[in-house]
Structure formats: structure tokens, C-alpha cells
């Protein structure tokens, strides 16, 4: 996130000695480096060759030997698939909602947490607010399906007991959209405050004192000092979220999914799983994955450029 450009002096001198010399001198370090390097190559770079599947009529039985080149057919097919556009739309909609509602939540919470003077209250509430971050999505989905069920869920029992009508929080697609978003806020809001609280801690206390002398109230201090001082953190975090607009986790939509809301819950990651690993259409699923990775990367670079244009540090 915050990154200094370090220009080391050693680069400016041309190597006078060959690599062999360094290998002999630092062989121990190279041995150590070899372990993570092998893992990175095998599990992160080797799969890149698998991307070729997007251009082949690959199937598991025949393997790569029997697969023949089909060019861009897989891409043509996905761009003609209705389901693909739905998944793409849902990905953008769900991430967009997270951006609009999920993004400001930790900022507001951090500012309020910072205003709390009682040490014990602060520590206890922080511990509680961080807790959901440590639960897996399987557990979170299990808890909320139980709590929000239209018939046996306690929230709806309370609603109907007081004369309201049962709300299909997770079983009707528009309600599901809101629930998906709010459950995400529930899970990540507390944890997200850490980065902002750290930024707020860095604000010079003199600023607040001067403002107090000038007669500024609490809200004014928040508006005119706290917010402007954490602006660059906010911008960097915002840009990172924008860069990830096409990247969507698998576990959250997958665990919160159910057949009644498939219209809105099928996103790129679940689409790839369904088409690729369940229906064994490897080239289609790989092509979708490749499309997502490339467009995602463009977004990351573009948002990084944008950040630098705005005078921020950027992320790369």
C-alpha cells in the first residue's frame, strides 16, 4: 500500500564479478531461497501453462496430447452465453454494493471508535467487532440461514409475533442482494477499522488542541481534522477496491447461495466452478478465468495510475 521507492546504490555499479562468485559466497542464502522459489514456480507459475486450455478442445481423458487447437472459439462461445453476462453483471453489482455500503462503514466506525475515551469499553467492543472476521463463510452462512429463515428463523418469528409479515431475507432475490451486502458489512466492518485507526493514531495531537482553542466542537474536529488527515489512506483503500471490482471471492457468494436467488448469486467465480469443475467444460471455464484475470489486472494497473495522478502513493 504505502511504498517507498528504494534506489540502492549497488545497482549503479556494474557487476565486476560473475554470478559464480556470488553463488559461492552466498550459497547458503541461495539454498534458503530455493524452497519458496520452487513452491512459487510449481504452484503459481506452472499453472499459467494451463491457460492454453482456453484455446484447445481439452478434455481430461485425452490430456494435452489429444487436444487440438481451436483458436478463439471458447471466447466466442462465452461471449454468446447468457449465463456469462449474468455472472459478469452480478459480480459487478455485488462488488459495487460492497463498495457503496461496505466501504464507508469501517471509516465511520473507526472515527467513532477513536472518540471513545473509556479504555475498557473500547477494548471490549473492538474485540467483539473483530470477531466475525475470524469465522469461516461456512459458519457465517450457517448462522444467518438459521437466524433469517422465513419460517423458523428467530428474526421472522419476532416480526410475525409483533404483527409484521415474514420477510424472505435470503430466499427472494432482491432481499438476498441486501442481505448479502449487509452480512458482508457485518463480517468485515470491524476488522476494516484497523487500518483507519492506525492512520488516525498518526495524526498530530497539536492539530486537535489548536482546534479546541479555536472553539471547534467534536463534529467539526472530525470533519476538518480527522477526515482530511486520513484522506490518503481512504483514497488508497478505495482505489484498491476499485481495482478488485471484477475479482470476487468464491466462498461468500457460494455459501450464501441457494436455488431461489440464482439470478443474482451466480458470479464469475461460481460460474467457473459450475461450468468447469462440475460440467467439465474446461476450455470455457479457463477462458472465463483468463478474461477475469486480464481485465482485473488492467483495473489494478489503471487504478494504480489513477492514484498516482491524484498524488497518492499507489499500490504497486
Amino acid at each position: 500500500m504505502l511504498k517507498k521507492k528504494d534506489k540502492s546504490i549497488s545497482d549503479k555499479h556494474k557487476d565486476s564479478k560473475g554470478f559464480k562468485y556470488y553463488l559461492k559466497r552466498d550459497w547458503q542464502l541461495y539454498v534458503l531461497l530455493l524452497f519458496p522459489l520452487v513452491f512459487a514456480i510449481v504452484f503459481k507459475f506452472l499453472p499459467l501453462f494451463g491457460l492454453s486450455v482456453a484455446f484447445l478442445d481439452y478434455d481430461v481423458v485425452g490430456g494435452f496430447e489429444k487436444a487440438s487447437f481451436i483458436g478463439l472459439d471458447a471466447f466466442k462461445e462465452i461471449f454468446g452465453m447468457k449465463d456469462f453476462y449474468i455472472a459478469l453483471r452480478n459480480t459487478i453489482v455485488l462488488n459495487g454494493l460492497d463498495l457503496i455500503i461496505g466501504f464507508p462503514a469501517p471509516i465511520i466506525l473507526a472515527i467513532f471508535l477513536n472518540e471513545i475515551r473509556n479504555k475498557y469499553f473500547k477494548r471490549i467492543t473492538q474485540t467483539v467487532l473483530y470477531l466475525p472476521h475470524f469465522l469461516s463463510w461456512v459458519i457465517i452462512a450457517g448462522i444467518f440461514y438459521q437466524l433469517l429463515s422465513p419460517t423458523t428463523g428467530y428474526i421472522n418469528i419476532l416480526i410475525t409475533r409483533y404483527g409484521g409479515e415474514s420477510i424472505p431475507f435470503l430466499t427472494e432475490k432482491w432481499h438476498w442482494l441486501v442481505s448479502y451486502c449487509l452480512i458482508g458489512v457485518w463480517q468485515s466492518m470491524g476488522w476494516g477499522t484497523i487500518i483507519y485507526l492506525a492512520a488516525i493514531t498518526g495524526i498530530n495531537a497539536d492539530l486537535y488542541e489548536a482546534a479546541t482553542v479555536d472553539g471547534a466542537g467534536r463534529w467539526r474536529k472530525i470533519w476538518y481534522i480527522t477526515l482530511p488527515c486520513i484522506r490518503s489512506t481512504i483514497v488508497v483503500m478505495l482505489i484498491m477496491s476499485l481495482g478488485r471490482i471484477l475479482g470476487i471471492s468464491f466462498e461468500r457468494p457460494y455459501t450464501l447461495d441457494n436455488p431461489l436467488v440464482r439470478d443474482f448469486s451466480d458470479v464469475i467465480s461460481t460460474f467457473v466452478y459450475r461450468v468447469g469443475l462440475q460440467s467439465h467444460r474446461y476450455n470455457i471455464a479457463t477462458a472465463v478465468g483468463l478474461f477475469q484475470s486480464v481485465v482485473g489486472l488492467i483495473f489494478v494497473f489503471a487504478s494504480d495510475k489513477f492514484a498516482k495522478l491524484m498524488g497518492e502513493d499507489g499500490i504497486i
Binding site: 512459487a40 504452484f43 503459481k44 507459475f45 506452472l46 499453472p47 499459467l48 501453462f49 494451463g50 491457460l51 486450455v53 467465480s269 467457473v272 466452478y273 468447469g276 469443475l277 474446461y282 471455464a285 479457463t286 478465468g289 483468463l290 477475469q292 484475470s293 489486472l297 489494478v300 504497486i316
Partner: peptide
């Protein structure tokens, strides 16, 4: 490796 991954299917094939 933090910014680019091959995706689900290439991982599976590997």
C-alpha cells in the same frame, strides 16, 4: 503472484 493467478481450471489441471 499476488496480482495474477491462472485461475481455477489451470490449478485443477496442475
Amino acid at each position: 503472484t499476488m496480482y495474477f493467478s491462472a485461475g481455477t481450471i489451470p490449478d485443477y489441471i496442475l
